[in-house]
Amino acid sequence: MKKKFGNKDVWIAYGLILPALLVFAIFMFYPFFYTVYLSFFDWNMIKPVKEFIGLANYKALFADPLMPLVIKNTVEYILILLVLNCVAPYVLAFVLSFVIKRGRGFYKGAFFLPSVISLVVGSILYLWVLNPVSGPAAILAEFLGINIPIWSKTQGLVIVVLSIITTWKIFGYNFIVIFGGVSGVPQEIIEAAKIDNVPLYKIFFDIVLPMSSATGVYIFIMTIVQGLQYVFTPVKVVTQGGPDNASSNIIYNIYQEGFVFYHTGYASAMSIVAMVLFIVLLVIEFRYVEKGIYYEN
């Protein structure tokens, strides 16, 4: 407890925080609770009177025949995203920190590059690149004798494509932050393991992963949060939820219910379900990850 500034200066501290706090209070905390409030009402944003209907929105939500599909899509999307944006960048960061010796700066800079580009641009780029008939990927695939399926009309594939697009955006940021955590593992520890002839995969699992787990957990959470937010853009730009809601997920559904059908209360209830889903995912994954670490040790 070092002495910092005198107590009489405390008001300066509050004053310095106030502008940020004000913005957060008005556009973050208040809306958060107002969404909870709205979820108990039937309202269309325009009617002067909100009708209190208790848990009816939630009941309707769980009775909605579309809901299971929407949730399944969301979970699938997140799982693919986690593999592509947590596991892959982790391995990449490990390789870059401890395996290869040249070109670190170049790779870091280049891998980060797509994350500064608009997701709308990304969506359009992939719409073109992955175009099953005339896109570069299709033409390259043709050389190899493979046909790219018409993914925009194929149930499972749509989600894969959406995941690829958001991955393109998120990967670089995740990679850089994970690289920071991984390269924070002292080089001597890795060298000591190499002298003992510990294989690379064991160095990764036994040393690097546990020692950088704080960063790993952070990225894990951020991938879910960002992924859910980002997916809205490609869905809106590329598929509009189609085909037959095959690409619709809970985030896009909230948008549609809220801003297309004006089911404000219903959309609010769905937002809360989405957040709960997000928290549940976190808890399950934490259990799993924790067990994994225990097992490894």
């Binding site: 973050m28 969404t35 949060v225 809205f232 937002s271 989405a274």
Partner: peptide, 28 residues
Amino acid sequence: YFDFKGKNLLYFILISTIFIPFTMTMIP
């Protein structure tokens, strides 16, 4: 650079907003 009452709690609350999904705030 300051010590004041509730500093850690306030910081925690502010930072935790990073994790609030966008959909929780967009309608209001």
